[in-house]
Design a protein around this nucleic acid. Structure first.
Lengths: 195, 195
DNA sequence: AATATTATAGTACGGTCGTACAATCGTCAA
DNA sequence: TTGACGATTGTACGACCGTACTATAATATT
């Protein structure tokens, strides 16, 4: 079992990640995190000397999760379509939260992109994890340059669907886009069976 | 010619719109607007009693522009494909700004969606102008429910492309997605010539 | 048990923001 | 020319934020 400090640190990161997602990075204060963790405000600064450090810790924690999830998917799932379809299902399953808060990765990139290039770099890396994973899957079906294009395309569909669902507060939008994405995927997979 | 006050008011709205786009709504202060307009800080509050009012004025100004643009397109352009393709070209033409600042409509929805439901309503209306226009165009090709779906899909592609281009600071991403969108559009237009 | 180190809390500082307000300026009608 | 009113300015207030600092409690080490 990790030491007391490690557990407190992890708890702070977990709460911060949740608040950054639901309220945004800029709108989340140390005070908010203090209340939600039960720790005093000063204690959070003891673990993270600045808000930027805290965001970086959150980003690392999230990326760890994403990497593990995708790595497992790479092992588990069979034909490329089934593998790629999991990403679509992941979005569909989270349609409710996407409509309420948007995509955790997309909205963070958006927020940090305008005024915080250094921190946005962290958010971009989260996006890149998914982009590269998708590209690797598409390489089983398509030549390299087309694989990259298709990965961008699927990710753009997902991000666009999340953004619109958030704008309209309508989870149904995610579901409709998911169906469209599956249709698009199935056409690609039958056109190029084993390239 | 409009009175002095009207011109000052319009100038403030114009500057605010630009800063809201490039820095975001939250990160733009009255002081910023004062510097850029040359007016004193207090004078801006003379025209707009609150920042919320200012955003609403910006939203109305933008919507006026969008509505006029789309109305003109509705009149000018011929077959549905040419008409729809204009939206794609609009995004492509602005690829540079999209990569730097994201989509003016999408990023505003994103920012306001998390903490400012009332103001996000304004941003959503901007999105709706485009969605409804797209839906109307698709109705020339498809049955009503499919038209709505396709409008959502094209808008999602565009928003997703802008978000990714912003995240990666890569205008090329917009261009690649624009080509993909054109391909998608052309398939729809040839499948259903005159539904 | 004594001590050093880690963990936690509370508070105060400097800065910025949106807003309010009082004072001044410009302009044009009476 | 005076006066009224719209336009403009500068400043001050209260709130909140990230951060720094000091003191205290808990834990570990010797």
């Amino acid at each position: 079992m990790p030491g007391k400090g490690q557990r407190a640190r992890a708890a702070i990161v977990e709460v911060a990640s949740d608040l950054f997602y639901r309220q945004g990075y800029g709108a989340t204060s140390y005070a908010d995190i203090a209340v939600r963790t039960g720790f005093g405000k000063g204690n959070i600064h003891y673990y993270f000397n600045s808000k930027e450090e805290l965001l970086k810790a959150v980003a690392e924690m999230r990326m760890e999760k994403y990497r593990k999830l995708l790595e497992q998917w790479s092992l588990e799932c069979g034909p490329p379509y089934d593998c790629l379809e999991r990403i679509v299902s992941l979005f569909e399953k989270n349609a409710g939260d996407l409509a309420k808060y948007g995509c955790p990765i997309g909205t963070l990139n958006d927020e940090l992109g305008k005024n915080n290039p250094e921190l946005q770099e962290e958010a971009r890396q989260m996006m890149d994890i998914f982009l590269r994973w998708l590209e690797a899957r598409f390489r089983a079906l398509l030549p390299p340059d087309e694989a990259r294009d298709h990965a961008e395309q699927l990710l753009a569909m997902a991000q666009g669907a999340a953004l619109l669902a958030h704008a309209y507060r309508d989870p149904g939008l995610v579901k409709r886009q998911a169906d469209a994405a599956r249709h698009w995927l199935s056409k690609i997979c039958e056109n190029e069976p084993h390239a």
